[in-house]
Structures are given as structure tokens and as C-alpha cells.
Nucleic acid binder design. Structure first.
Lengths: 351, 351
DNA sequence: TTGTAAGCGTTATCAG
DNA sequence: CTGATAACGCTTACAA
């Protein structure tokens, strides 16, 4: 594989001229440009990003750190990130934390001294304990040697100094609960996402506010905290049933738990939605496959990833522009778990 | 962030000594080692991989190129790759081709001149046309400057010179078809994966051989070629029904198409499995969620990824050892789409 | 407009 | 055992 020197030799020019042709930073005469381009073509030369990186403090790599390479959620986000990355000339390195903040910090640290150009982070740190808070603050001025490394937070607003791409979790929860209210439900249980994190707390908050706005009382014993997984939804539902409280509908904080909820209800002999209705958040394709199909609030997953990558490129261009939070829209999807009129077609596309 | 020079200054030694302490390539006296380690600790020094990469021709980065960041298939594979990569000290860069060989070559080319240490490739090139064949050959001696870049092929045997991690596709198809035969089916249709690729061709071959071994005649008009996607399975099934041939079972080359097949059959008023039984290959979690649940042949997806990464590290250590193909085992999973006694529980774990 | 040369952070060679 | 120094491939002042 050819290097810049080979090109220079072949074209009979100096290496700086080759560099200038490639980077268009300084003007080069047409003749030389021509000769250089021919040499580049002939030798199939492409710049070596390692050499360039050393000099220019840029690697054209961004790191993506997520809790899990989750089956239903992560791929679409990664597609968005990758597509935008490809467009703007960045390669994507991926890291999984398993929800372990220590491992997350390890990955961040690794990326920082890799001279990566930016980080997209779906963090599990929550600013509750002091060490997490220090860690989050450290991200703001996260720097490699002399350059700051921009961080874009995915799905939660980490720090007033960190860009983020999110959805309005409170609103999404409100959309879900409102739908149940409109169906005539007066007693609605909630299978929550982990409450020590923003997503869980905000969706709970949206649930509570929407109930109260409708003149209903919030009842903590109708809430059970899961961990996003389908099985936790199943377990929460079983626990709620054991409490023997009255409710006719369940709002699950995500579709995966919603599916677990449906399974639990069916296993206990309830009809869905006649006895108890269920709605989730995410609008993942499996929700269309179960019977009854699960109503949900759509999250624009691909868009979330794309915008995160886009925000990162903007931040790299203008490190000092004011901090930016992009909030994407959500949308109600009515299926059979809340309404006999809901859609019941399997999603056979895009998976 | 501190560099090697800062450490050297702080410890009062030369940079080579610092390097020797870090890499343990040459002995260093205990006193100096101590001083250096203290300085490293104090400054939170970690080597800069860009500088190291330039010198040592190693980046500790591995590129993974796949047709799609597929929802059901890719995440588990990536988990396996990432886990093994983390263990052996490699970061994972991911690239999606959308099944476009031109884009695939673009990514490969990019990785080659990135001085990446290795490539895991799920290729869509098929050695049919001459340009593909040349491209595949070029992977064998794929080199960046002076060093060969090892390639591990995922899911298909690309070239006699390229390591691969695969499953025995013929055998997996045989397992599926045999199961149908054991259920008493004598006329079995096949919704095939793209036949110009190994996976599709081998699964078709396994289908044909198993039929013939059972004394049944292979009938090409019972075969319809899909493209892996659920919707293509749906369309194929519709087309097979229109041909008005008799069959009582369908072997779909993957679960996604199998789910499409079930949907088509239900839409046309057939009962599954009473009128027509269906089996797939993959054992993805959505297959447990549909009604009836889809029988399948399990593929060890995580293991596929883990072994690919492992193979790569072995190859990097010993570039000249004989080429290695790892074939992983598959296993029949009986659900309701082929047998009333099959399992019908939703998979609520690991997604 | 073009070329020369310094230097990015590290490793490796070789002389002390 | 230790340290000076030359690479690695590239960008970028600065000199011509």
C-alpha cells in the first residue's frame, strides 16, 4: 500500500504538495495537481489516518457507549449513527457496558486517551451519588491532551454542559396514559422503568401528572418498578396482581415490559384488553407480533442516533457554541391491547 | 492528559525507560521502575494508541463489516465479538453495507488503509462474477503497508485462504426437514434464502438431499426464493399458494421468513400446523412470540461472534498457521408451528 | 506556488 | 541497565 512519499516521488513533487492537493488547504497549480492526482490514482493512495491523527489531533473515529447491544432498541439507533457517521466521514467504535457504571467509565477513559474525536454516550450514571456526579462533570471538560472531546448524551440530559438527544419522556408517558383515560379507564397501574434514572422517573412523573390532571388520585401501590426487560414486566405484573388492588389498565414504561405484562395477564386468565388493557412505550416490532398486539408510543430510534451523530459533528466544528438539546417527537400507536379497533397487523418490514 | 515525556520528566528518567517499564520489553532496575510507576500513577498516564500505532503498526482496532445491523441477528453476534474483543484488548468498529458489495469493498478498503489489525466480514460477495472473485482473492493478501491484515469470514466460507466461523448449513436444513418428515409430512415446500449465496444454496441443498434420502422427489416448483426478510417470506408463501401445488409443510430458510410464511397462511385461512406446518432456522426470540410459535433450528449467534474474534486474535499471533474453519453446532427447537406438543412459552429473557 | 523541515507520541536500535 | 536518537506518515509553518 502506497504512502504519501511514493505519491510524491511518482508525481515528481514534494510531499507537502501532495498533502495540499489532498486537503485543499493551499492552492496548487493545475499542472501539479493533475500529476499528483494521476499518481494518487495509479497507486491507489489513500491517506493513513494514523499518521494524520498523530499530527492533526483527529482520528475521525467516534465512540458509542451503550448499556446493551439490545435486540430491539440499539440496532436502529446504531443505524442512524452509522449512516450519519458515514456521511460525515466518521467511523463508529462501539462499547457495551452491561449497565455497569464502572465499565462505562473504563470505556470513556479508554476513548479519551485514544484521541477519539467524540463520544455518544447512553449513560447509566445518574448523578445521585457523588462519584457519579464527579464522573459526569468530568465528561464536560473531557479532554485528550489539548483538545476537548465532545460528548453527546443519548436518551437523557446528563449535565447542563452536555449536548443531548432525547424524547420528552413525561409527554410520552402522558400520551400513553391519556389514551387509557380516553378508553374510559379510571384505575391504571404502572410498571415503571428503573426510577433512579431519568427515563424511569420522568415517565412515572408523566403518569402521575396525567392522572392528577384527570382528577384521579395517584396511588403508589399501583406502581411496580421493573428493569426494562420483558421478564421484569412479567414479574411486576404478577406482583401487582398479588396486591389485590383494583385496576383495569396497565401503563408499562417500555414495550419489552409491556409484553411481559401481557404474558402475565394471560397466564393468570385475564383477557386483554377486555379485563385489563396494556400500553407500552417504544413501538418495537415485537409488539406487533404478540397476541393481542401491544399499543405503544413510538420513539424515533433511527432519528435519535442520526441526530446524536449530527450534533457531534456540529459540536466538533464549533466547540464553544451554546449547549444544545434536541427533543424528538413521539406518537401514539393504537393496537389491540387497548382497543378492539386497534391495528393487528404484524410488522413484517425493516427487521 | 499526560504524555510519555511528562512521565519521564517527573520520574527523572528518559522516555525509553518509561516505555520499557510500560511494555516490559527490556529489564528496568527496581528503583527506576518504582519511580516511573509512581509518575504514571500521579499523572494518570496511559499510552497514546495513535502514537503507538504509527510506530508499531498496530491499532488494537478490529473492523466488523456486516450487511445489516439486523434487529434479531446482529446484536447477539456483536455481543460475542465485543466480549472477546474486550477480553483480548481490541476495540470494535462497525460498518453496515446494506448488502451492497460496492459499499462493502469501500469499507474494506477504508479499514485496510486505517491500519486496522483485523477484519471480521459477513460478506455479500459470492465469487460468481469475476470482479467479486478478484475482490475476495484480494482479501487473502490484504495488507496495509507491510503487514497482512487478517480477515475472518462470518457465516460463509469465502476462500480457501480465509479463516471462517460458520454453521453447517446443509445439516441445519437437514435437521429442519427431517423434523417435518418425522411429523409425517410427505410434501414439503421451501422458502429459500437468496440462492446466489452459500447460505441459501446450502440450505436448499440440505433440503433436497434430505428429501431424496427419504425417498421423496425434489420438486423445484415447491421452492420460492426470498431475501431473508419477513415480508419476502410472506410474498413467497402467497406465490407458492397460487401455484396450487399440494404441500403440507413449509421449510423456511430463516425464522424471519418463517414468520412471514405463518402470517400468509393465517391470512389465507389455513390452520398452522393442522393444515400446513412451518419451520425456520435461527431460533430468534420473535419466533416465540407469534401465534402459533415457530419451530426452528437454533444457531449459536453469540458464539459465532465470540469465536470469530477469537480466531482473529489467534491469526494475528500466528499469521502463517494453517487456515482454520470453525463449524458450530445447531439444535432443533420444536414449537407449535409443527407440533401441538411443541413449546409455547414466550421468550422473555435476553432481549 | 512550491519545497524544506519540524514535530505529533511512541517504539526500537544502538551506543554508553 | 539506561539514554539519545532515528524512525513511523502526515500536516503545517516558514523559507525560497
Amino acid at each position: 500500500m502506497a504512502g504519501i512519499k511514493d505519491v510524491a516521488k511518482k508525481a515528481g513533487v514534494s510531499i507537502s504538495t501532495v498533502s495540499n492537493v489532498m486537503n485543499e488547504k493551499k492552492p496548487v497549480s493545475p499542472e501539479l495537481r493533475q500529476r499528483v492526482n494521476e499518481a494518487i490514482e495509479a497507486l491507489q493512495y489513500e491517506v493513513n489516518p494514523v499518521g494524520r491523527g498523530l499530527k492533526s489531533n483527529k482520528t475521525n473515529q467516534v465512540g458509542v457507549i451503550v448499556p446493551s447491544f439490545n435486540q430491539v432498541y440499539f440496532p436502529a439507533i446504531l443505524q442512524g449513527i452509522h449512516e450519519a457517521g458515514f456521511k460525515f466521514g466518521y467511523a463508529i467504535s462501539v462499547f457495551e457496558t452491561g449497565g455497569d457504571v464502572e465499565r462505562e467509565r473504563q470505556h470513556v477513559r479508554f476513548l479519551q486517551h485514544s484521541w477519539i474525536d467524540g463520544i455518544i454516550l447512553a449513560s447509566y450514571a445518574n448523578g445521585e451519588n457523588i462519584s457519579d456526579r464527579k464522573y459526569i462533570r468530568s465528561l464536560v471538560n473531557s479532554s485528550s491532551r489539548k483538545k476537548k472531546i465532545p460528548v453527546v448524551s443519548l436518551e437523557n440530559v446528563l449535565d447542563p454542559g452536555i449536548d443531548a438527544v432525547v424524547i420528552d419522556n413525561k409527554k410520552a408517558a402522558g400520551i400513553a396514559v391519556n389514551h387509557l383515560l380516553e378508553q374510559g379507564h379510571k384505575a391504571i397501574a404502572h410498571v415503571a422503568a428503573p426510577l433512579r434514572f431519568q427515563i424511569g422517573a420522568l415517565r412515572l412523573e408523566g403518569y402521575r401528572e396525567t392522572l392528577e390532571k384527570a382528577g384521579l388520585k395517584f396511588d403508589g401501590s399501583l406502581v411496580c418498578e421493573g428493569n426494562y426487560s420483558p421478564i421484569s414486566g412479567y414479574q411486576c405484573m404478577m406482583e401487582l396482581l398479588e396486591r389485590e388492588k383494583h385496576f383495569t389498565a396497565v401503563f408499562a414504561a417500555n414495550d419489552q415490559m409491556g409484553i411481559g405484562v401481557i404474558r402475565a395477564l394471560l397466564d393468570r386468565g385475564y383477557r386483554v384488553p377486555e379485563d385489563i388493557a396494556v400500553i407500552g412505550i417504544d413501538n418495537n416490532f415485537p409488539s406487533t407480533l404478540v397476541t393481542p398486539s401491544l399499543s405503544s408510543v413510538n420513539l424515533p430510534k433511527y432519528e435519535l442516533g442520526y441526530q446524536a451523530m449530527y450534533l457531534l459533528t456540529e459540536r466538533m466544528k464549533e466547540p464553544d457554541k451554546p449547549r444544545c438539546v434536541i427533543t424528538l417527537d413521539t406518537e401514539l400507536i393504537v393496537r389491540r391491547s387497548t382497543s378492539k379497533e386497534g391495528s393487528d397487523t404484524w410488522n413484517l418490514l425493516n427487521w
